[in-house]
């Protein structure tokens, strides 16, 4: 059981979440111009990384918001939780700007209501043992 730090709700059991597969897979800009190979790549091919893997999660039982997570597929360590639309927080790269989940094209938010959250908040460092949202999760 993973303990996942939802950017809105704080630390929750994995059973409250839904897995969304590899993150940062953009819909083709011009689908009509793809050949069969490229279309197959978009439909059926996803990275199957052994190690740090950027993936999408949905807090389906909680706030029903999508977010991205960097997780090690061997140790299952959660290395970062960051908003949809934000760049993957690589160790070498500078931490991306705080983003708003609602501006991402695949966010389920109807308005611009999603709180801005720290892009590199990790499960362990920002998730208090409480049931409520981590400090600074909402503004």
């Amino acid at each position: 059981m993973l303990l996942i730090s939802c950017p809105n709700c704080g630390s929750r059991d994995e059973t409250e979440f839904h897995y969304g597969g590899q993150a940062h897979v953009a819909y083709p800009e011009n689908p009509n111009e793809l050949n069969d190979r490229e279309w197959a790549e978009f439909l059926f091919y996803r990275d199957n990384t052994k190690g740090a893997f950027a993936e999408r999660w949905l807090h389906s039982t909680g706030c029903r918001q999508w977010f991205n997570m960097l997780r090690d597929t061997v140790t299952y360590d959660i290395q970062a939780v960051y908003p949809m639309g934000a760049a993957r927080p690589d160790k070498s790269a500078p931490a991306p700007e705080s983003g708003t989940a609602s501006t991402a094209p695949d966010s389920t938010t109807t308005g611009t209501a999603a709180p801005s959250i720290a892009a590199t908040s990790t499960a362990t460092s920002t998730a208090p043992a409480s049931a409520t949202a981590p400090e600074g999760a909402t503004k």
Binding site: C9, R12, D13, T15, E16, T61, G62, C63, P128, A129, S130, A131, T132
Partner: peptide, 13 residues
Amino acid sequence: PRSFTPGTALNTE
């Protein structure tokens, strides 16, 4: 009670 106080509601299981 130290973290779940009256007047609080959470979406959970």
